[in-house]
């Protein structure tokens, strides 16, 4: 493995997980982060789907990068992404129908996810397939972990459950505890993203804007 994950590749992989996170630092893909994080399950599926699509579209574009004419590169990128999105969407419909219903248009909208176009333009067009694959995985995971963390808190406090299983004991409800309805509403996802950004920046001073 030593050769596969050289210092540079490691950086490519770990960067997006923390200091170059697509959501909290580059502030991309916020829309879907608000839309699919009311529960843990769709958030996880969304995270995995985006990871797969970013990684493979990165590889494909990277392989094609020397043959794509510069003037039509966006169209080529879109075609590749759209093909992969369709594949993922069909697989979800076949094997996880209720989740795909829950995610509704957001799987289709991965095409317009800024993270994808960003990685293709910024990385895959200029790097070799293996590095592009690692970069795609890194960004996908960077996106996915934020989604999962937000969904964890939203589902736990908003519905009192995790992955649909009730977590908050019945006893607490008898004592008068009520689930927080605001957690289910999209604004709370934004506030949770803000909290993650807050914690991240107070731990990494170099991320703070002057």
């Amino acid at each position: 493995m030593g050769k596969l994950l050289s210092e540079k590749t490691k950086k490519v992989f770990l960067g997006p997980l923390n200091k170059n996170n697509p959501i909290t630092v580059q502030v991309l893909g916020i829309c879907s982060a608000l839309a699919v994080t009311a529960e843990l399950k769709p958030a996880l599926v969304m995270g995995i789907s985006v990871t797969i699509i970013v990684a493979f579209s990165n590889v494909i574009i990277s392989l094609l990068r020397n043959t794509i004419p510069n003037s039509i590169r966006i169209i080529v990128q879109l075609v590749v992404v759209a093909a992969l999105v369709t594949v993922v969407s069909e697989i979800l419909k076949a094997f996880a129908y209720d989740v795909s219903v829950q995610l509704s248009v957001y799987i289709g909208l991965i095409i317009t996810n800024c993270i994808l176009m960003g990685r293709l333009e910024a990385f895959a067009m200029a790097n070799k397939p293996w590095a592009s694959f690692i970069d795609g995985l890194g960004n996908g995971f960077g996106y996915a972990w934020i989604l999962v963390v937000i969904a964890f808190f939203r589902e736990l406090f908003g519905s009192g459950s995790l992955f649909g299983f009730p977590i908050i004991p019945e006893k607490l409800y008898e004592w008068g505890y009520i689930n927080n309805g605001l957690m289910i509403l999209p604004p709370m996802a934004l506030i949770l993203v803000a909290c993650i950004i807050w914690i991240q920046r107070s731990r990494n001073k170099e991320l703070q804007e002057k």
Binding site: I178, N180, G181, L182, M183, L185
Partner: peptide, 10 residues
């Protein structure tokens, strides 16, 4: 507003 949206029943 937080109370109103978070705990509408109360």
């Amino acid at each position: 507003v937080f109370l109103f949206f978070a705990y509408p029943t109360a």
